[in-house]
């Protein structure tokens, strides 16, 4: 029964992990930018949700879409003003600039929000309900469902709407996309905005489940990176599955080996995936 509970926790947490990686995988696949500031954007989304909840008194799950809109605008502006300078340039340049961005965001957040631990704590935060002997946390279940819903919406946008078709076309063949009237500058900014909005949603949910500090960015970037590679860049649902896979692996590790070893396992999985299926890491949307 303990094992079943651990597995359930792993799956629910894994959904959130998948959502964290979703935006990173999208940006990576389309813009060929491994966004090292992705974790910092998750952190920022967490604070936006936190302040919408504490200052404006908006229920965090209602605040989530508002935070996503704010984060979309932020991401759009970031891509338009800064990252369009280095899009499709050498990998080292993109790594450098996004790493710099991560540092700037982290310490700006420290300045603005202080280094105190924050938790988004609605009245129902501690509520559980029993299902067949297992305990299900309301907030964790809701976070999981939000992650699935957002992955579904992203899948729909990418595969059924003209915008998504243009995004995939640009990822696959920039020359041809330009030839048929796609404006890459706008498209990249929209894509990065979507990625940032997804990061924002993940941050809001993270703030309900765990603690927000300005410094969580780096480790969340690393986790998103692992999941994006395990899940691949081609399909939002694979990314969610990748997240669930890592979530289960971490939960089992915490139970049988010890909570301090969870990162060893997730990065160990990364190594295994890179050895077994190296093409996964380079295949774009």
């Amino acid at each position: 029964m303990v094992l079943a509970q651990i597995l359930l926790n792993g799956v629910l947490l894994g959904g959130l992990y998948g959502l964290m990686a979703l935006g990173m995988a999208l940006v990576w696949g389309v813009l060929n930018i491994v966004n090292l500031s992705h974790g910092a954007l998750i952190m920022l989304g967490g604070y936006v949700t936190y302040y919408l909840f504490t200052l404006a008194g908006i229920d965090p799950f209602v605040a989530l879409p508002i935070a996503m809109v704010i984060m979309f605008c932020f991401g759009f502006a970031l891509q338009w003003g800064v990252l369009n300078l280095i899009v499709r340039s050498k990998m080292l340049n993109t790594l450098l600039i996004t790493f710099g961005l991560q540092v700037v965001l982290t310490f700006t957040a420290q300045l603005l929000f202080t280094a105190d631990f924050r938790t988004i704590n609605p009245t129902y935060a501690g509520n559980n309900f029993p299902v067949g002997g297992l305990t299900v946390s309301v907030v964790r279940l809701a976070a999981f469902l939000v992650a699935i819903a957002l992955a579904s919406i992203l899948w729909f946008v990418l595969n059924r709407l003209p915008l998504g078709r243009a995004i995939r076309a640009t990822a696959q063949n920039l020359t041809a996309a330009r030839l048929y009237g796609v404006n890459p500058r706008v498209l990249y900014a929209v894509t990065f905005g979507i990625g940032t909005a997804l990061a924002g949603a993940a941050g809001g949910l993270y703030g309900m489940i765990s603690n927000l500090t300005p410094y969580i960015g780096a480790s969340l970037t690393a986790k998103s990176f692992v999941i994006a590679i395990i899940g691949g860049l081609s399909n939002p649902f694979y990314v969610i599955f990748g997240g669930i896979f890592v979530g289960i692996a971490e939960s089992l590790t915490a139970l049988y080996i010890g909570p301090t070893y969870t990162d060893v396992i997730s990065f160990g999985l990364l190594v295994v995936v890179l050895v077994v299926r190296p093409s996964r890491a380079v295949r774009a949307a």
């Binding site: 003209p162 078709r165 243009a166 995939r168 076309a169 696959q172 063949n173 020359t175 041809a176 996309a177 030839l179 048929y180 009237g181 796609v182 081609s234």
Partner: peptide, 25 residues
């Protein structure tokens, strides 16, 4: 409208989606 050298299709999109990209604007 140009048909570029080397076809320049979107390889991981279906034929129908490729055609739709022609009508993108």
């Amino acid at each position: 409208v140009q048909v570029p050298e080397g076809r320049q299709l979107f390889p991981r999109m279906t034929v129908e989606e490729n055609l739709l990209m022609g009508a993108h604007l």
